[in-house]
Design a protein around this nucleic acid. Structure first.
Lengths: 129, 129
DNA sequence: CTTGACCTTCCCATGATGGTAAGCCTGAAG
DNA sequence: CTTCAGGCTTACCATCATGGGAAGGTCAAG
């Protein structure tokens, strides 16, 4: 299977597949005589794993660790759980940060009449904290 | 006032002040005979505005618009409100996305015993959706 | 044998920020 | 007056994940 077909079947773009290979997230794939990359079912399996981990917000670096745990039959599930928990904390921190932004901004926005007049609590709020 | 002092007094790094100037977010500052940037109170005011807008998650592009509204005495507060609302929507979308990730990941994590045994619902969840 | 769709590598861009290096300027202490 | 530290200048590189595009090789159908 060529890279385009692999991309279609996994939802990972050809561009990204090459990139993952270049940063060592994927092993170098086999090549045809002409130098085309050739993908096996195992490769697709890995790509789908990466795709799902990305969709949960893991960084490529974290995914590298997850992949090696995934491929290690003697892994301790505790190691995976530790990684996942740390990522949940990161997500929580980000969510809190965004919610604080959102809430403050909404407060300002609600008190802005939003018509043709120039006075605007939003700009006032940005001018002084 | 030199750039370092301006940076200290506004919390915006020298690096970023120069960057904001280079992308046209700030007007080119005055220069001393030797070419040093010189900042006035007005400049500091602008820098603090940018700093606060950044802390609410506005992009530099959005801030460019906010700044020009801020400096326009004939602005319509409705224009500001529209911008702010759009940004709130963006924040909401991002928060929803992160919460979906978080909740799914937590679900997987809770069902993982997290000890020395290799079987792990987190990895299983990444393997198949 | 041509054509179009695919593949290859290589370079550039994004957005916000930080780092570093080479070289100039300023002010204070000797 | 010289020297030295520390601040300033520009210019380039890096991050992170992703996409765009160019220049050129390959393959299959007509």
């Amino acid at each position: 299977m060529n890279i385009g077909e692999a991309a279609n079947s996994t939802g990972v773009s050809s561009k990204m597949i090459r990139h993952y290979e270049s940063i060592g997230l994927l092993e170098n794939s086999k090549r045809s005589a002409a130098g085309y990359r050739i993908y096996s079912d195992t490769d697709l399996h890995n790509l789908r794993f990466i795709k799902r981990a990305r969709s949960l917000g893991f960084s490529l670096d974290q995914i590298k660790q997850l992949l090696s745990l995934w491929q290690d039959r003697k892994r301790a599930s505790g190691d995976v759980k530790t990684l996942a928990k740390k990522h949940i904390e990161e997500l929580d921190a980000k969510i809190l940060e965004l919610r604080a932004m959102r809430d403050l901004l909404e407060e300002l926005t609600e008190s802005c009449h939003g018509d043709d007049r120039p006075d605007c609590p939003i700009l006032d709020g940005l001018e002084a904290p």
